[in-house]
Computed example of a mutant assay.
Amino acid sequence: MSETASWGSTWIADSNGDQGGEIVLTFDDNRIASALYGSHDQNLAFLERRLGISATPRGNLLAIRGPREACEQASSVLRKLHDRIRKGGNVALGDVDGAIRLTAAQGSLFPTAPTAAEPAGIFAQLSTRKKSVSARTPAQDAYIRAFGRHELVFGVGPAGTGKTYLAVVHAAQLLERGEVDRIILSRPAVEAGERLGFLPGDMREKVDPYLRPLYDALHDVMPPERVERGLQNGIIEVAPLAFMRGRTLAHAAVILDEAQNATSMQMKMFLTRLGEGSRMVVTGDPSQVDLPNGMTSGLAEAVRLLDGVEGVSICRFTDVDVVRHELVARIVRAYEAAPRADVRE
């Protein structure tokens, strides 16, 4: 038993009186519906797996069946994604996951039709000319909002939580808006348990292997030709952490990645480079320190010392904020649950 409505605003329970039932959504544009469903209905399959519902497309109709709370959440997720497509955006599996997390953050039951008092989404967003990126978890939302409120932001947590990527998007946004004159990318030149030895080439070529994740993020949110032009004319600068001493970084968006591998002295030196009109983001995973035994991570010390200092925001991520792949979150939890051991022994 079901009722067809523009956004399934009426819940029709099964006649046997259990908690199951059905909502049928109607789409005016089949092209938008097709984009919403994804290639081979992969977005619907992901939604079914995550929420424990069944989603059956019938042309411009979509029947959502299952427990009431899950069906209401699925309806809310699809409405948000539909609005995004209608405004010219794209929807990938990561966007479906983000919409699920967003609706979960808003509450257990959700209205199935938008109202004037209810915006299409509450999570913060970063935008460049090439791409718009919305937060996918409450922690990412707090992180993005901290960018606009604090000169120095720490993003601390496990791999795959978007710490570095969002910092790069923020920097690109500031540059395009003219709020800063340049982007400076830095990272400790510490190998993850390996020794690469002598690296040939100029300075950029020597540090490329260490800064590749930052380059990848820049190319994702800025046109490749602008990234290359920026690297050539100094608007985008690659600066190994060891070479930052003595500089004053004014009117710049500064990112220190993999900061858990900075020593205490290096971290203090880097943080005190902050100049007028600059914004600084420091990211790292305290559980992946590659410093020699006996050396204190500068990131851990800085987070402890600067917590509560005016102008500084410390944003902490956990395994529930992993957005890279579902399996990554499970890997992080497995390692955190295992007894602590020094794998370098």
Rank of each mutant, 00 (worst) to 15 (best):
I64N: 06
R49I: 00
V77G: 10
K268R: 15
E228C: 02
P240Y: 06
G52W: 11
V343L: 13
V96C: 05
S278C: 04
E3L: 14
S297H: 06
Q260M: 05
Y215C: 09
I184M: 06
D285C: 07
D18Q: 05
C315I: 10
Y335F: 15
A239L: 15
L126G: 01
G148P: 00
V303L: 07
V281D: 11
D208A: 14
V289K: 04
A120K: 07
P339F: 08
V156G: 00
Y37W: 14
D321Y: 03
T112G: 15
L62D: 11
A159M: 05
M265D: 15
Q19P: 01
T164G: 09
A35T: 00
F243I: 06
T103D: 00
S127H: 09
K163Q: 09
G107L: 08
G38P: 09
A105M: 04
L291S: 12
E176Q: 13
G178K: 08
N60F: 03
R149L: 12
D319R: 02
E310D: 15
R136A: 13
E22A: 14
L199M: 15
A63M: 03
A113R: 13
G155N: 03
Q173S: 14
I183W: 01
D18R: 10
D181F: 03
P111Y: 00
A159K: 02
I183A: 00
R65C: 10
G230E: 07
Y165I: 04
R145S: 05
S76I: 04
K130N: 05
D220M: 02
G275N: 04
V156C: 06
I85T: 03
